[in-house]
Design a protein around this nucleic acid. Structure first.
Length: 416
DNA sequence: TCTGGGGTCCTAGGACCC
DNA sequence: TCTGGGGTCCTAGGACCC
């Protein structure tokens, strides 16, 4: 075994709620729920006061309302959340040589080499205090020998606390916990383990590796390792994005072909724009349809690497026609681009399509100025309202026609 | 109670190639 | 005559995380 590392994990406590409370201190001490607004909303974040009523994140809004009728439901202010997240990230970046931003509200810091364990603990305590002092946000941390244990320590420390697992006490820390406390053991896996009589991590540790391997494959090996506190994934300060996606659930199901196609158009346009902003091209397009009753299907296709809205919309439309069962009510439509490659200097390959490039940069510069939502998505997003659908369809048709005639002109020019 | 949106990773079957 | 085996890519679906 290699020398033990010292890893810190940090988690902003009910982050969205904390930001809302900075914006409006009268929310302090009250059951605040972010999300769960609208016909099909779910809870994104909730205060500990709300959790006492059984509310938790990912819960359908209707259920949260039932459990906590006097709760304060907020739609969420994602711009503010990003801003605060960035501020916290900056504080950590200034203090730590090697850290990883694991999500909008979670961070890992590698403190290996910091004079023994207690020096690291003091350093971590000070960083935590500094974050709360400078942003007003409560944050918890865990400290241990790897990412998994540090994260589990944070979970025990929350809310607004800190916990170091002493060296050598790792197994003692793990053994009594339910297997579901292991990160990556979700509802399904926990249920499956419980059925075999495995409830605690101690129970899991009694299972021979061969058994776990034959039942769960790779997952089995991971379970065997996690039960022993083994986890060697490094603190990674950079991660390349592998896919981008966008999807929308409608307030009510729709089987209106024209409407569905216009949504697909808007989503694909938006995603292509994101792709160009990232300086990436995609080599694979996936269209997802979720029908009435949560029945979900998808169709993907490998395509020539592209960042062209027009081309990607054509591909998405083809996939949609192959996938969609006409007349069946649809709950959600989604688009994903994967097999991303960095455009880098290759962007010049597109110089010969000057017209197209100009069109995009014109659209993009307007978007940069006013925000994506306002240009293409504002009308497309709140689509519960059927009356609006006709407007959208008309606008989309107009746009498609414009692009088609442009396309035809280009083709004609090429043929000459 | 009736299930968001943005991601990652894994599995398993089939195509295809040598 | 009636069917090998390894490697890789593509596709569909699902579990899981925040």
């Amino acid at each position: 075994m290699s020398d033990p590392r010292t890893i810190m994990h940090m988690d902003l406590d009910s982050f969205f709620v904390s930001v809302e409370r900075i914006k409006d201190p009268s929310l302090l001490g009250k059951p605040v729920i972010v999300g769960g607004v609208g016909a099909r909303g779910v809870v994104s974040s909730c205060s500990y006061e709300a959790r006492r009523y059984g509310v938790h994140s990912a819960m359908p809004g209707a259920q949260a309302h039932k459990l906590c009728p006097h709760g304060i439901f907020l739609p969420g202010d994602y711009t503010a959340y990003s801003d605060y997240s960035r501020r916290v990230t900056q504080i950590i970046a200034n203090a730590a040589p090697l850290f990883e931003k694991a999500s909008i509200d979670e961070f890992y810091v590698d403190l290996t080499g910091m004079d023994k364990y207690f020096g690291a603990y003091r350093w971590a305590t000070e960083l935590r205090q500094k974050i709360t002092r400078e942003t007003g946000l409560p944050i918890s941390f865990g400290l241990s020998v790897n990412k998994m244990l540090a994260k589990m320590a944070t979970n025990d420390a929350k809310p607004n606390g800190q916990l170091m697992i002493e060296r050598g006490k790792e197994q003692e820390f793990l053994d009594p916990k339910p297997v579901g406390k292991i990160p990556f053991v979700g509802e399904k896996l926990e249920e499956s383990l419980n059925k075999m009589g495995i409830h605690t991590i101690y129970d899991l540790r009694q299972m021979p590796l061969e058994n776990l391997l034959s039942i769960y494959g790779k997952t089995g090996t991971a379970l065997w390792n996690r039960a022993r506190g083994h986890s060697d994934s490094p603190v990674a300060n950079f991660r390349e994005e592998k896919s981008v996606s966008v999807e929308r659930t409608f307030d009510s199901d729709s089987a209106d072909d024209e409407f569905l196609l216009s949504v697909l158009f808007v989503l694909t346009e938006k995603l292509s724009y994101d792709l160009r902003k990232l300086n990436r091209m995609t080599g694979c397009v996936t269209v997802k349809i979720r029908y009435e009753g949560f029945v979900t299907t998808s169709k993907q296709h490998t395509v020539d690497y592209s960042l062209s809205s027009k081309y990607l919309i054509e591909e998405a439309t083809k996939l949609f026609h192959q996938l969609y069962e006409k007349g069946r009510p649809v709950r959600l439509i989604g688009v994903r681009f994967s097999s991303l490659i960095y455009t880098g200097t290759q962007y010049s390959l597109f110089d010969d399509k000057e017209e197209e490039t100009k069109l995009y940069s014109a659209i993009d510069s307007v978007k940069n100025k006013y925000g994506t939502g306002k240009i293409m998505l504002a009308r497309g997003m709140d689509m519960g309202n059927v009356k609006r659908n006709n407007d959208i369809s008309a606008a989309m048709k107009e746009q498609v026609n414009r692009e088609n005639s442009q396309h035809n002109r280009n083709n004609a020019a090429e043929e000459q």
